[in-house]
Nucleic acid binder design. Structure first.
Lengths: 220, 220
DNA sequence: CCCTCCAGATTGTCAAACAAAACGTGTTCC
DNA sequence: GGAACACGTTTTGTTTGACAATCTGGAGGG
């Protein structure tokens, strides 16, 4: 499997990657303003280049922008987390069902799984995050659905926002890997019920646990 | 119902709207290069502003961009059209089922339908297109699913690319309105089977007819 | 035919400037 | 006390002009 590290070919992509990384690592908070002049100086790019990077992240969903009011790190409320879970469930199901019907696609998924299993226990939170996200991207890619490929950056960004805050999942990488193993087994079995159950455990239950953990520890 | 004409608050949004309009009306072809210097002059904006507009359209999916090679109007092959139909089916179903379970959401959909019925027979192709797209946007909005709202621009752009080429649908606005009426009736009935059948007729069958019409009249 | 080279075209980026909009603070009025 | 207004400051949105980097197309040679 080709490792799908996004190739940085422009300074705008590099700036976007740096900002994305700081969001993943929690170095900036949801809702935090991102000041163009200071951030451009900090990243060593010109302001128009930074704007292009921030617009990229905004179109994906990691940042939010209002005309004349600037950019900020995106926020997701409880209902938005549930909406993401429901929508992911339906799109993950489409991907999984498409893969289950095709042996070549199943092999691609198995390769993605092997890579995740190898990388998912890494103690570095950034590496864990990237391995997790890469597994899902590879699963969608294995379905060879053009539209899913196009929708992936948005779903990736929303998932990233949740995962960056999700201490439950982050504190137990073994559990995360196990949940994803169940998905792979279900797809390989070809059973719609098994796929549904595995995706449900992965997506809907994880979202509810995340929401519950935030209620116990309100942020502000 | 508030008419959801996107408010143009920045010159970048205005430039993007003008380019979007020329794509809808077929004034530019799929695959056609969009030259920054000429296009900026034509639209009366500076080049960085045009770039921001083009990046917006690229993130949505109406345009494609490769570093150092510039922007072009996006293209969709047959498989991509089918992938869009399948993905739309699954997301439309999610929206429809969410709406069917909630009377307030059903009322919102009925309002969207009334607006489309009033506007959908307009002989102006741009008005038809906008009415069609607005109905779908309003249907997703009626589901109040945050993630669907975020995914909408991409699905809108892909659907726009297909509709801009779809002479079958464009040549028969009455049929298009009828298909959408079936969706509304199915949602109001609350029957999953009826929803599935109506969405299938709308989405999968229309995609196959479109693909068939292109095979009969190859573009080049 | 294929390969190499190069001039021209185009894109990516930067710096500086300025207009427009928003923000924060202080003052006045009810 | 709260609301409205004025004003200075900060920030964003955009333009202009320049230049470096990359790509493209055509010419020439083997």
């Amino acid at each position: 499997m080709t490792a799908s590290v996004p190739e940085v070919r422009t300074r705008r992509e590099g700036a976007a990657a740096a900002i994305r990384r700081s969001i993943i690592l929690g170095q900036v908070e949801p809702g935090q303003k991102l000041r163009e002049v200071a951030l451009a100086a900090e990243l060593g790019v010109s302001r128009p280049t930074l704007r292009e990077a921030l617009l990229l992240l905004t179109h994906e969903g990691l940042c939010e922008q209002e005309p004349h009011r600037g950019f900020s790190v995106a926020t997701l409320d409880e209902q938005a987390v549930r909406d993401l879970a429901e929508t992911r469930l339906t799109l993950d199901r489409l991907a999984a069902v498409t893969i289950a019907g095709d042996p070549a696609k199943c092999r691609e998924l198995a390769q993605a799984w092997a890579a995740y299993e190898a990388a998912g226990h890494n103690p570095d939170p950034l590496a864990q995050h990237l391995a997790h996200v890469e597994f899902h991207r590879a699963m969608w890619a294995a379905s060879h659905n053009d539209t899913l490929t196009r929708l992936w950056p948005t779903v990736d960004a929303l998932s990233t926002l949740v995962l960056a805050q999700d201490q439950v999942m982050r504190g137990d990488p073994g559990r995360a890997v196990h949940l994803h193993g169940r998905i792979v087994d279900a797809v390989a079995s070809g059973s719609s019920d098994a796929i549904e159950a595995a995706l449900n455990a992965h997506t809907r239950q994880s979202a509810e646990e995340f929401i519950a953990s935030r209620i116990q520890r309100p942020h502000s």
